[in-house]
Simulated assay, not measured.
Amino acid sequence: MVILVIAAINIYIDFKARDFLFDHTNAIPDNTYALVLGTSKYVVGGGKNSYFESRMKAAEQLFSANKVDTIIVSGDNREDNYNEPKRMKQALIELGVPEGLILEDKSGTKTDFSIRYFKNKYPGQGVTIVTQKFHNQRAVYSARKNGMNAVGFNANDIGFLRDKKTHVREWFAKVKAFTL
């Protein structure tokens, strides 16, 4: 029964978000702001994080296609030596996004915190959320549930088979988002 409830909630959230998720810049509506959800630049044990790289490329694509004017990078920075927004900002600058058009949200330790920050800081503004599709389903669902005019731009994903842990964790995060 528990598995059926988890599956039903995931299907419901995916269904509610589907019309607001985009894979290509030519189809996505324009927004003033993009909100890039944080992740570490490196994986545990070393090496580049594919999620990070894909999100930065997706945000740059939106900017280059004139689909957003300003990019907000939101992530964890609770420790002196770990600062997701700072690393995301640097990566976007390296991709050619002007530094003055990148804002840092240092309260984004969780997806819900990033969404609340944006809603409180920019009330009534539309936003394009940038992350992988499996994560964007929940983020856009949560934002719209909270009265925000949000769409999602899906960054490339490495797929379930290469990262089962993150994808399965997201199934449970969707259940939590549904109940809040």
Rank of each mutant, 00 (worst) to 15 (best):
V5H: 04
A7C: 11
A7D: 02
N10R: 14
K16R: 04
K16D: 00
R18F: 15
D19N: 14
D19M: 11
D23H: 08
D23A: 04
H24S: 01
A27Q: 05
A27Y: 12
P29H: 10
D30Q: 11
N31I: 11
N31L: 07
Y33T: 04
Y33V: 04
Y33F: 08
Y33D: 00
A34P: 00
A34D: 01
A34Y: 12
L37I: 05
L37D: 00
L37M: 11
T39F: 06
S40Q: 06
K41M: 06
Y42A: 02
Y42Q: 03
Y42S: 01
N49H: 07
S50Q: 10
S50W: 05
Y51K: 08
Y51I: 12
M56Y: 09
K57T: 10
K57L: 12
A58D: 01
A58Y: 10
A59Y: 05
A59N: 03
E60H: 10
L62S: 07
F63T: 00
F63Y: 11
A65H: 15
N66S: 08
K67T: 11
D69Q: 02
T70S: 05
I72S: 01
G75H: 14
G75T: 15
G75Y: 14
R78K: 09
E79P: 10
Y82N: 02
E84L: 09
E84S: 03
K86N: 05
K89Y: 07
K89A: 04
Q90M: 13
A91G: 04
L92E: 02
L92R: 04
I93Y: 09
G96I: 15
V97W: 10
E99K: 10
G100Q: 08
L101R: 14
I102M: 06
I102Y: 08
L103I: 11
K106F: 11
K110D: 03
T111P: 04
D112T: 15
F113S: 01
F113G: 00
S114G: 11
I115V: 14
I115Q: 06
F118C: 06
K119Q: 05
K119S: 02
Y122D: 02
Y122G: 02
P123M: 13
G124D: 08
V127W: 03
V127I: 14
T128F: 14
T131L: 12
Q132L: 11
Q132H: 05
F134Q: 00
Q137P: 12
A139F: 12
V140P: 07
S142D: 02
K145S: 03
K145G: 01
K145D: 01
N146F: 13
N146A: 12
G147C: 09
G147E: 07
G147A: 10
N149G: 02
A150K: 01
A150I: 09
V151E: 02
F153L: 04
F153H: 03
N154F: 13
D157A: 09
G159T: 09
F160G: 00
F160L: 06
F160T: 14
R162C: 05
K164R: 13
K165L: 03
H167I: 11
H167L: 06
H167C: 08
V168S: 02
V168P: 04
R169E: 02
E170T: 12
F172G: 00
A173H: 12
K176G: 00
K176S: 06
T179I: 09
